[in-house]
Design a protein around this nucleic acid. Structure first.
Lengths: 239, 239
DNA sequence: CGGTGGATTGAGTGGCGTCAACCTGAGTGG
DNA sequence: CCACTCAGGTTGACGCCACTCAATCCACCG
Protein backbone atom coordinates (compact mmCIF):
# COMPACT_ATOMS: atom_id res chain seq x y z
CA UNK A 1 0.00 0.00 0.00
CA UNK A 2 1.21 3.49 -0.82
CA UNK A 3 2.47 5.77 1.92
CA UNK A 4 -0.43 8.22 2.44
CA UNK A 5 1.84 10.90 3.91
CA UNK A 6 4.11 10.79 0.88
CA UNK A 7 1.05 10.87 -1.36
CA UNK A 8 -0.23 13.99 0.32
CA UNK A 9 3.10 15.82 0.42
CA UNK A 10 3.52 15.21 -3.29
CA UNK A 11 0.20 16.88 -3.94
CA UNK A 12 1.88 20.10 -2.75
CA UNK A 13 5.29 19.93 -4.39
CA UNK A 14 7.52 17.63 -6.39
CA UNK A 15 9.87 15.69 -4.13
CA UNK A 16 13.18 14.56 -5.64
CA UNK A 17 13.98 10.86 -5.15
CA UNK A 18 16.30 11.41 -2.19
CA UNK A 19 13.57 13.31 -0.34
CA UNK A 20 11.02 10.63 -1.14
CA UNK A 21 13.41 8.12 0.37
CA UNK A 22 13.90 10.35 3.38
CA UNK A 23 10.14 10.45 3.91
CA UNK A 24 9.90 6.67 3.59
CA UNK A 25 12.72 6.37 6.11
CA UNK A 26 10.82 8.40 8.71
CA UNK A 27 9.54 5.53 10.77
CA UNK A 28 9.62 4.29 14.30
CA UNK A 29 7.20 1.88 15.91
CA UNK A 30 3.72 1.18 14.52
CA UNK A 31 0.97 1.37 17.12
CA UNK A 32 -2.71 0.51 17.03
CA UNK A 33 -5.47 2.27 18.93
CA UNK A 34 -9.15 1.58 19.54
CA UNK A 35 -11.88 4.24 19.51
CA UNK A 36 -11.56 6.62 22.46
CA UNK A 37 -7.87 5.97 23.05
CA UNK A 38 -5.58 8.93 23.53
CA UNK A 39 -2.83 8.89 20.90
CA UNK A 40 -1.19 11.85 22.66
CA UNK A 41 -2.33 13.63 25.80
CA UNK A 42 -2.62 17.31 26.59
CA UNK A 43 0.45 18.25 28.65
CA UNK A 44 2.62 15.49 27.17
CA UNK A 45 6.09 16.22 25.84
CA UNK A 46 6.38 13.40 23.34
CA UNK A 47 9.75 12.52 21.82
CA UNK A 48 8.09 11.45 18.57
CA UNK A 49 5.31 12.56 16.26
CA UNK A 50 2.53 10.39 14.86
CA UNK A 51 1.38 9.83 11.30
CA UNK A 52 -2.11 8.45 10.91
CA UNK A 53 -1.94 5.46 8.55
CA UNK A 54 -5.62 4.58 8.75
CA UNK A 55 -8.70 5.60 10.72
CA UNK A 56 -9.96 8.93 12.02
CA UNK A 57 -8.59 10.99 14.90
CA UNK A 58 -9.29 14.40 16.42
CA UNK A 59 -7.47 17.10 18.33
CA UNK A 60 -9.47 17.60 21.48
CA UNK A 61 -9.29 20.22 24.20
CA UNK A 62 -10.95 19.53 27.52
CA UNK A 63 -12.20 22.72 29.13
CA UNK A 64 -12.44 23.48 32.83
CA UNK A 65 -16.21 22.93 32.98
CA UNK A 66 -15.96 19.49 31.41
CA UNK A 67 -16.88 20.50 27.88
CA UNK A 68 -14.90 19.29 24.89
CA UNK A 69 -13.81 21.19 21.82
CA UNK A 70 -12.40 19.60 18.68
CA UNK A 71 -9.91 21.83 16.87
CA UNK A 72 -9.02 19.46 14.05
CA UNK A 73 -10.13 16.22 12.42
CA UNK A 74 -7.54 13.87 10.97
CA UNK A 75 -7.55 11.09 8.42
CA UNK A 76 -4.96 8.85 6.80
CA UNK A 77 -1.80 10.68 5.78
CA UNK A 78 -2.12 13.36 8.44
CA UNK A 79 0.77 14.10 10.75
CA UNK A 80 -1.51 14.51 13.76
CA UNK A 81 1.07 16.13 16.03
CA UNK A 82 3.99 17.17 13.88
CA UNK A 83 3.93 20.39 15.89
CA UNK A 84 5.03 18.50 19.01
CA UNK A 85 8.45 18.35 17.29
CA UNK A 86 8.96 21.98 18.39
CA UNK A 87 5.96 22.97 20.47
CA UNK A 88 6.00 21.76 24.07
CA UNK A 89 3.97 20.83 25.99
CA UNK A 90 0.99 19.57 23.96
CA UNK A 91 -1.86 22.07 24.22
CA UNK A 92 -4.46 19.41 23.40
CA UNK A 93 -4.97 15.66 23.22
CA UNK A 94 -5.31 13.61 20.07
CA UNK A 95 -8.00 10.95 20.35
CA UNK A 96 -8.63 7.97 18.12
CA UNK A 97 -12.22 8.24 16.88
CA UNK A 98 -12.14 4.88 15.12
CA UNK A 99 -9.62 2.07 15.14
CA UNK A 100 -6.37 3.79 14.19
CA UNK A 101 -3.01 2.64 12.96
CA UNK A 102 -0.24 5.10 13.81
CA UNK A 103 3.31 5.30 12.54
CA UNK A 104 5.51 7.04 15.08
CA UNK A 105 8.42 9.16 13.92
CA UNK A 106 11.09 9.99 16.53
CA UNK A 107 11.85 13.70 16.74
CA UNK A 108 15.54 12.90 16.35
CA UNK A 109 14.77 11.49 12.91
CA UNK A 110 12.83 14.62 12.04
CA UNK A 111 15.73 16.79 13.14
CA UNK A 112 18.25 14.87 11.05
CA UNK A 113 16.02 14.64 7.99
CA UNK A 114 15.10 18.33 8.01
CA UNK A 115 18.71 19.41 8.48
CA UNK A 116 19.87 17.18 5.66
CA UNK A 117 17.00 18.08 3.30
CA UNK A 118 16.06 21.77 3.65
CA UNK A 119 13.43 21.52 0.94
CA UNK A 120 11.79 18.59 2.68
CA UNK A 121 11.88 20.65 5.86
CA UNK A 122 9.90 23.32 4.04
CA UNK A 123 7.36 20.81 2.78
CA UNK A 124 6.84 19.49 6.32
CA UNK A 125 6.63 23.04 7.61
CA UNK A 126 4.04 23.64 4.89
CA UNK A 127 2.03 20.72 6.21
CA UNK A 128 1.70 22.45 9.58
CA UNK A 129 0.88 25.72 7.80
CA UNK A 130 -2.01 24.09 5.97
CA UNK A 131 -3.24 22.78 9.30
CA UNK A 132 -3.18 26.36 10.39
CA UNK A 133 -5.08 27.56 7.32
CA UNK A 134 -7.78 25.00 8.05
CA UNK A 135 -8.02 26.30 11.59
CA UNK A 136 -8.50 29.82 10.27
CA UNK A 137 -11.42 28.63 8.16
CA UNK A 138 -12.92 27.03 11.23
CA UNK A 139 -12.48 30.25 13.21
CA UNK A 140 -14.25 32.24 10.51
CA UNK A 141 -17.04 29.68 10.46
CA UNK A 142 -17.44 29.49 14.22
CA UNK A 143 -17.49 33.25 14.48
CA UNK A 144 -19.66 34.20 11.57
CA UNK A 145 -21.44 31.29 9.90
CA UNK A 146 -24.64 29.51 10.89
CA UNK A 147 -24.56 25.96 12.17
CA UNK A 148 -25.86 24.55 8.88
CA UNK A 149 -23.33 26.50 6.88
CA UNK A 150 -20.48 25.32 9.09
CA UNK A 151 -21.65 21.75 8.75
CA UNK A 152 -21.80 22.11 4.97
CA UNK A 153 -18.32 23.62 5.01
CA UNK A 154 -16.92 20.74 7.02
CA UNK A 155 -18.50 18.24 4.63
CA UNK A 156 -16.93 20.00 1.65
CA UNK A 157 -13.53 20.20 3.32
CA UNK A 158 -13.49 16.55 4.27
CA UNK A 159 -14.40 15.50 0.73
CA UNK A 160 -11.42 17.38 -0.67
CA UNK A 161 -9.10 15.97 1.96
CA UNK A 162 -10.36 12.43 1.41
CA UNK A 163 -9.87 12.83 -2.33
CA UNK A 164 -6.27 13.96 -1.76
CA UNK A 165 -5.37 10.63 -0.19
CA UNK A 166 -7.61 8.41 -2.28
CA UNK A 167 -10.30 7.85 0.35
CA UNK A 168 -13.18 9.37 -1.59
CA UNK A 169 -15.39 7.63 -4.10
CA UNK A 170 -16.71 10.36 -6.39
CA UNK A 171 -18.77 12.59 -4.11
CA UNK A 172 -18.95 10.04 -1.30
CA UNK A 173 -16.73 9.05 1.59
CA UNK A 174 -16.86 7.19 4.88
CA UNK A 175 -17.48 9.56 7.79
CA UNK A 176 -17.66 7.39 10.91
CA UNK A 177 -18.30 10.22 13.39
CA UNK A 178 -21.15 10.44 15.87
CA UNK A 179 -23.32 13.52 15.99
CA UNK A 180 -21.80 14.31 19.39
CA UNK A 181 -18.33 14.45 17.85
CA UNK A 182 -19.53 16.54 14.93
CA UNK A 183 -21.01 18.89 17.50
CA UNK A 184 -17.71 19.22 19.34
CA UNK A 185 -16.06 20.12 16.03
CA UNK A 186 -18.78 22.56 14.97
CA UNK A 187 -19.29 24.22 18.33
CA UNK A 188 -22.90 23.11 18.67
CA UNK A 189 -24.78 20.42 20.61
CA UNK A 190 -25.52 16.96 19.29
CA UNK A 191 -29.22 17.82 19.17
CA UNK A 192 -28.54 20.75 16.91
CA UNK A 193 -26.22 18.69 14.72
CA UNK A 194 -29.15 16.38 14.18
CA UNK A 195 -31.41 19.23 13.15
CA UNK A 196 -28.77 20.75 10.89
CA UNK A 197 -28.19 17.40 9.19
CA UNK A 198 -31.89 17.09 8.58
CA UNK A 199 -31.94 20.52 7.01
CA UNK A 200 -29.23 19.45 4.56
CA UNK A 201 -30.99 16.15 3.90
CA UNK A 202 -34.38 17.76 3.32
CA UNK A 203 -32.83 20.15 0.83
CA UNK A 204 -31.37 17.11 -0.93
CA UNK A 205 -27.80 18.35 -0.49
CA UNK A 206 -26.44 15.21 1.15
CA UNK A 207 -27.18 11.65 2.20
CA UNK A 208 -25.64 10.45 5.46
CA UNK A 209 -26.38 7.01 6.83
CA UNK A 210 -24.41 4.18 8.30
CA UNK A 211 -21.27 6.29 8.54
CA UNK A 212 -21.31 6.94 4.80
CA UNK A 213 -21.66 10.46 3.49
CA UNK A 214 -22.71 11.21 -0.08
CA UNK A 215 -23.00 14.67 -1.54
CA UNK A 216 -26.06 14.92 -3.76
CA UNK A 217 -25.75 18.54 -4.86
CA UNK A 218 -22.20 19.81 -4.76
CA UNK A 219 -22.93 23.26 -6.18
CA UNK A 220 -25.63 24.17 -3.71
CA UNK A 221 -23.63 22.70 -0.82
CA UNK A 222 -20.65 24.85 -1.79
CA UNK A 223 -22.91 27.88 -2.00
CA UNK A 224 -24.43 27.26 1.42
CA UNK A 225 -20.97 26.68 2.89
CA UNK A 226 -19.29 29.59 1.09
CA UNK A 227 -16.58 27.02 0.37
CA UNK A 228 -13.41 27.76 -1.59
CA UNK A 229 -10.81 24.96 -1.53
CA UNK A 230 -7.85 27.28 -2.16
CA UNK A 231 -6.90 27.27 1.52
CA UNK A 232 -6.12 23.55 1.35
CA UNK A 233 -3.19 24.23 -1.01
CA UNK A 234 -3.80 21.03 -2.94
CA UNK A 235 -1.82 22.27 -5.92
CA UNK A 236 1.75 21.48 -6.79
CA UNK A 237 4.04 24.49 -6.48
CA UNK A 238 7.71 25.10 -5.83
CA UNK A 239 7.94 25.65 -2.08
CA UNK B 1 15.56 50.34 19.72
CA UNK B 2 15.69 46.58 20.16
CA UNK B 3 14.46 44.27 17.43
CA UNK B 4 11.09 43.04 18.74
CA UNK B 5 11.18 39.89 16.59
CA UNK B 6 14.58 38.91 17.95
CA UNK B 7 13.35 39.68 21.45
CA UNK B 8 10.38 37.36 21.02
CA UNK B 9 12.31 34.52 19.38
CA UNK B 10 14.80 34.57 22.24
CA UNK B 11 11.97 34.08 24.70
CA UNK B 12 11.55 30.61 23.14
CA UNK B 13 15.14 29.44 22.73
CA UNK B 14 18.69 30.64 23.02
CA UNK B 15 20.01 31.87 19.67
CA UNK B 16 23.77 31.64 19.11
CA UNK B 17 25.43 34.88 17.89
CA UNK B 18 25.48 33.87 14.23
CA UNK B 19 21.72 33.20 14.30
CA UNK B 20 21.09 36.50 16.03
CA UNK B 21 23.00 38.18 13.24
CA UNK B 22 21.05 36.24 10.66
CA UNK B 23 17.79 37.49 12.19
CA UNK B 24 19.08 41.06 12.23
CA UNK B 25 20.05 40.64 8.58
CA UNK B 26 16.52 39.65 7.58
CA UNK B 27 15.43 42.98 6.21
CA UNK B 28 14.05 44.44 3.07
CA UNK B 29 12.13 47.68 2.72
CA UNK B 30 10.41 49.39 5.64
CA UNK B 31 6.83 50.43 4.90
CA UNK B 32 4.30 52.49 6.83
CA UNK B 33 0.55 51.99 6.85
CA UNK B 34 -2.39 53.94 8.19
CA UNK B 35 -5.42 52.39 9.94
CA UNK B 36 -7.54 50.36 7.53
CA UNK B 37 -4.75 49.76 5.00
CA UNK B 38 -4.22 46.25 3.71
CA UNK B 39 -0.69 45.08 4.48
CA UNK B 40 -1.36 41.94 2.43
CA UNK B 41 -4.50 41.00 0.56
CA UNK B 42 -6.42 37.73 0.43
CA UNK B 43 -5.43 36.00 -2.83
CA UNK B 44 -2.02 37.67 -3.02
CA UNK B 45 1.15 35.67 -3.62
CA UNK B 46 3.66 37.96 -1.95
CA UNK B 47 7.38 37.48 -2.52
CA UNK B 48 8.17 38.72 0.98
CA UNK B 49 6.84 38.40 4.50
CA UNK B 50 6.14 41.23 6.92
CA UNK B 51 7.31 41.80 10.47
CA UNK B 52 5.28 44.24 12.48
CA UNK B 53 7.67 46.75 14.08
CA UNK B 54 5.00 48.86 15.77
CA UNK B 55 1.22 49.17 15.82
CA UNK B 56 -1.59 46.62 15.72
CA UNK B 57 -2.74 44.49 12.78
CA UNK B 58 -5.26 41.71 12.22
CA UNK B 59 -5.77 38.75 9.93
CA UNK B 60 -9.15 39.29 8.37
CA UNK B 61 -11.34 37.06 6.24
CA UNK B 62 -14.15 38.62 4.24
CA UNK B 63 -17.08 36.25 3.87
CA UNK B 64 -19.48 36.00 0.96
CA UNK B 65 -22.31 37.81 2.77
CA UNK B 66 -20.10 40.78 3.62
CA UNK B 67 -19.30 39.78 7.17
CA UNK B 68 -15.76 39.91 8.52
CA UNK B 69 -13.94 37.48 10.74
CA UNK B 70 -10.63 38.15 12.47
CA UNK B 71 -8.52 35.03 12.93
CA UNK B 72 -5.52 36.66 14.59
CA UNK B 73 -4.42 39.89 16.22
CA UNK B 74 -0.84 41.06 15.84
CA UNK B 75 1.43 43.39 17.72
CA UNK B 76 5.09 44.44 17.50
CA UNK B 77 7.44 41.54 16.91
CA UNK B 78 4.87 39.42 15.09
CA UNK B 79 5.67 37.96 11.69
CA UNK B 80 2.17 38.67 10.40
CA UNK B 81 2.41 36.50 7.29
CA UNK B 82 5.45 34.30 7.68
CA UNK B 83 3.25 31.51 6.33
CA UNK B 84 3.14 33.21 2.93
CA UNK B 85 6.73 32.01 2.57
CA UNK B 86 5.32 28.57 1.74
CA UNK B 87 1.55 28.88 1.65
CA UNK B 88 0.09 30.34 -1.53
CA UNK B 89 -2.17 32.11 -2.18
CA UNK B 90 -3.00 34.13 0.98
CA UNK B 91 -6.21 32.78 2.51
CA UNK B 92 -6.88 36.08 4.30
CA UNK B 93 -5.91 39.75 4.33
CA UNK B 94 -3.81 41.46 6.96
CA UNK B 95 -5.15 44.89 7.86
CA UNK B 96 -3.44 47.66 9.78
CA UNK B 97 -5.67 48.51 12.73
CA UNK B 98 -3.54 51.44 13.84
CA UNK B 99 -0.61 53.21 12.20
CA UNK B 100 1.82 50.37 11.48
CA UNK B 101 5.48 50.18 10.63
CA UNK B 102 6.36 47.02 8.72
CA UNK B 103 9.72 45.49 7.95
CA UNK B 104 9.50 43.37 4.82
CA UNK B 105 11.66 40.26 4.49
CA UNK B 106 12.07 38.82 0.98
CA UNK B 107 11.28 35.14 0.77
CA UNK B 108 14.65 34.59 -0.90
CA UNK B 109 16.34 35.81 2.27
CA UNK B 110 14.21 33.47 4.35
CA UNK B 111 15.15 30.54 2.11
CA UNK B 112 18.86 31.27 2.37
CA UNK B 113 18.81 31.96 6.11
CA UNK B 114 16.82 28.82 6.94
CA UNK B 115 19.02 26.62 4.75
CA UNK B 116 22.17 28.03 6.30
CA UNK B 117 20.86 27.93 9.89
CA UNK B 118 18.67 24.85 10.46
CA UNK B 119 18.12 25.71 14.11
CA UNK B 120 16.94 29.19 13.20
CA UNK B 121 14.64 27.55 10.69
CA UNK B 122 13.13 25.54 13.52
CA UNK B 123 12.67 28.64 15.67
CA UNK B 124 10.87 30.40 12.82
CA UNK B 125 8.80 27.28 12.20
CA UNK B 126 8.01 27.35 15.91
CA UNK B 127 6.75 30.90 15.55
CA UNK B 128 4.14 29.73 13.06
CA UNK B 129 3.31 26.78 15.33
CA UNK B 130 2.57 29.11 18.23
CA UNK B 131 0.31 31.07 15.91
CA UNK B 132 -1.44 27.82 15.32
CA UNK B 133 -1.71 27.05 19.04
CA UNK B 134 -3.31 30.45 19.58
CA UNK B 135 -5.81 29.67 16.85
CA UNK B 136 -6.70 26.41 18.59
CA UNK B 137 -7.44 28.32 21.78
CA UNK B 138 -9.67 30.64 19.80
CA UNK B 139 -11.49 27.68 18.23
CA UNK B 140 -12.13 26.16 21.65
CA UNK B 141 -13.39 29.51 22.90
CA UNK B 142 -15.61 30.21 19.90
CA UNK B 143 -17.09 26.74 20.09
CA UNK B 144 -17.57 26.31 23.80
CA UNK B 145 -17.07 29.46 25.84
CA UNK B 146 -19.48 32.33 26.51
CA UNK B 147 -18.85 35.75 25.02
CA UNK B 148 -17.64 37.19 28.34
CA UNK B 149 -15.30 34.27 28.89
CA UNK B 150 -13.84 34.63 25.40
CA UNK B 151 -13.33 38.33 25.94
CA UNK B 152 -11.59 37.66 29.25
CA UNK B 153 -9.42 35.05 27.54
CA UNK B 154 -8.39 37.46 24.81
CA UNK B 155 -7.50 40.10 27.40
CA UNK B 156 -5.33 37.62 29.28
CA UNK B 157 -3.64 36.41 26.10
CA UNK B 158 -2.85 39.92 24.90
CA UNK B 159 -1.34 40.84 28.25
CA UNK B 160 1.07 37.92 28.06
CA UNK B 161 1.98 38.72 24.48
CA UNK B 162 2.51 42.40 25.25
CA UNK B 163 4.71 41.47 28.18
CA UNK B 164 6.81 39.23 25.93
CA UNK B 165 7.83 42.20 23.78
CA UNK B 166 7.96 44.83 26.51
CA UNK B 167 4.68 46.54 25.63
CA UNK B 168 2.93 45.93 28.95
CA UNK B 169 3.14 48.06 32.04
CA UNK B 170 2.39 45.75 34.95
CA UNK B 171 -1.18 44.60 34.33
CA UNK B 172 -1.94 47.32 31.80
CA UNK B 173 -1.40 47.78 28.09
CA UNK B 174 -2.59 49.88 25.18
CA UNK B 175 -5.40 48.19 23.30
CA UNK B 176 -6.46 50.57 20.53
CA UNK B 177 -9.23 48.41 19.07
CA UNK B 178 -12.82 49.43 18.48
CA UNK B 179 -15.62 47.31 19.85
CA UNK B 180 -16.51 46.39 16.27
CA UNK B 181 -13.03 44.92 15.76
CA UNK B 182 -13.14 43.10 19.06
CA UNK B 183 -16.46 41.67 17.94
CA UNK B 184 -14.97 40.40 14.68
CA UNK B 185 -12.26 38.66 16.69
CA UNK B 186 -14.66 37.22 19.27
CA UNK B 187 -17.39 36.18 16.86
CA UNK B 188 -20.00 38.51 18.36
CA UNK B 189 -21.54 41.85 17.43
CA UNK B 190 -20.23 45.21 18.57
CA UNK B 191 -23.34 45.66 20.70
CA UNK B 192 -22.62 42.47 22.56
CA UNK B 193 -18.95 43.38 22.99
CA UNK B 194 -20.17 46.49 24.74
CA UNK B 195 -22.37 44.49 27.08
CA UNK B 196 -19.66 41.94 27.77
CA UNK B 197 -17.16 44.69 28.56
CA UNK B 198 -19.60 46.19 31.00
CA UNK B 199 -20.00 42.85 32.68
CA UNK B 200 -16.23 42.67 33.23
CA UNK B 201 -16.11 46.28 34.37
CA UNK B 202 -18.99 45.90 36.80
CA UNK B 203 -17.30 42.90 38.35
CA UNK B 204 -14.18 45.05 38.75
CA UNK B 205 -12.08 42.70 36.61
CA UNK B 206 -10.81 45.33 34.18
CA UNK B 207 -10.72 49.00 33.33
CA UNK B 208 -10.83 49.93 29.65
CA UNK B 209 -10.97 53.52 28.52
CA UNK B 210 -9.24 55.62 25.94
CA UNK B 211 -7.64 52.60 24.32
CA UNK B 212 -5.91 51.65 27.56
CA UNK B 213 -6.71 48.35 29.21
CA UNK B 214 -5.89 47.65 32.86
CA UNK B 215 -6.53 44.37 34.60
CA UNK B 216 -7.82 44.96 38.12
CA UNK B 217 -8.25 41.37 39.25
CA UNK B 218 -5.98 38.98 37.42
CA UNK B 219 -6.97 35.87 39.37
CA UNK B 220 -10.68 36.21 38.81
CA UNK B 221 -10.15 37.17 35.18
CA UNK B 222 -8.07 34.03 34.64
CA UNK B 223 -10.75 31.96 36.31
CA UNK B 224 -13.53 33.41 34.16
CA UNK B 225 -11.40 32.89 31.05
CA UNK B 226 -10.17 29.41 31.98
CA UNK B 227 -6.80 30.80 30.91
CA UNK B 228 -3.55 28.84 30.98
CA UNK B 229 -0.61 30.56 29.26
CA UNK B 230 1.23 27.30 28.49
CA UNK B 231 0.03 27.37 24.87
CA UNK B 232 2.00 30.55 24.22
CA UNK B 233 5.29 28.68 24.76
CA UNK B 234 6.93 31.67 26.37
CA UNK B 235 9.59 29.54 27.99
CA UNK B 236 13.09 28.95 26.78
CA UNK B 237 13.68 25.39 25.62
CA UNK B 238 15.99 23.63 23.20
CA UNK B 239 14.02 23.41 19.95
C1' DC C 1 -21.10 74.38 14.28
C1' DG C 2 -22.47 70.47 11.69
C1' DG C 3 -20.48 65.93 10.51
C1' DT C 4 -18.70 61.53 11.73
C1' DG C 5 -17.08 57.33 14.08
C1' DG C 6 -17.54 54.99 18.08
C1' DA C 7 -19.84 53.83 22.59
C1' DT C 8 -24.06 53.03 24.98
C1' DT C 9 -28.78 51.71 25.85
C1' DG C 10 -33.53 49.63 25.15
C1' DA C 11 -37.02 46.59 23.08
C1' DG C 12 -38.06 42.81 20.55
C1' DT C 13 -36.50 38.51 18.05
C1' DG C 14 -34.44 34.12 16.92
C1' DG C 15 -30.88 30.51 16.66
C1' DC C 16 -29.31 27.30 19.36
C1' DG C 17 -29.15 25.13 24.14
C1' DT C 18 -31.39 22.33 27.70
C1' DC C 19 -34.01 18.74 29.25
C1' DA C 20 -36.44 14.81 28.57
C1' DA C 21 -38.74 11.20 26.20
C1' DC C 22 -38.67 7.75 22.83
C1' DC C 23 -36.79 4.86 18.99
C1' DT C 24 -33.57 1.89 16.76
C1' DG C 25 -29.95 -1.50 16.05
C1' DA C 26 -26.09 -4.05 17.83
C1' DG C 27 -24.43 -6.72 21.17
C1' DT C 28 -24.68 -10.01 25.08
C1' DG C 29 -26.13 -13.35 28.07
C1' DG C 30 -29.40 -16.72 29.69
C1' DC D 1 -34.56 -17.15 20.67
C1' DC D 2 -35.79 -13.71 23.61
C1' DA D 3 -34.79 -10.31 27.43
C1' DC D 4 -31.82 -6.87 28.48
C1' DT D 5 -28.52 -3.20 27.99
C1' DC D 6 -26.45 0.53 25.84
C1' DA D 7 -24.88 3.87 22.48
C1' DG D 8 -26.54 6.75 19.25
C1' DG D 9 -30.24 9.06 16.62
C1' DT D 10 -34.66 11.64 16.69
C1' DT D 11 -38.26 14.65 18.32
C1' DG D 12 -40.82 18.18 21.19
C1' DA D 13 -41.29 21.94 24.61
C1' DC D 14 -39.27 25.59 26.51
C1' DG D 15 -35.62 29.04 27.77
C1' DC D 16 -31.71 32.06 27.14
C1' DC D 17 -27.70 34.12 25.04
C1' DA D 18 -26.68 36.89 21.64
C1' DC D 19 -28.62 39.31 17.35
C1' DT D 20 -31.26 43.10 15.16
C1' DC D 21 -32.73 47.52 14.79
C1' DA D 22 -33.02 51.66 16.48
C1' DA D 23 -32.16 55.87 19.15
C1' DT D 24 -29.09 58.64 21.84
C1' DC D 25 -24.76 60.42 23.49
C1' DC D 26 -20.14 61.85 23.19
C1' DA D 27 -15.50 63.24 21.51
C1' DC D 28 -13.22 64.80 17.92
C1' DC D 29 -12.52 67.50 13.84
C1' DG D 30 -12.77 70.14 9.64
Amino acid sequence: MANPLLLKLQRRDLLPPEEQEAVEALRGAVRDFVPGDAIVRQGDRPSFSSVLQSGWAARVKFLADGQRAISALHLAGDFVDLHSFLLKPMDHSVLALTACRILTVPHDQLRVATERHPHLARVLWLDTLIDSAIQREWIAGLGRRSAASRLAHLICELLMRCQAVGLADGLGYDLPLTQTLLGDALGITAVHVNRSLQELRQNRLIRFEGGRLTIMNWDRLVELADFDPAYLNLTREPR
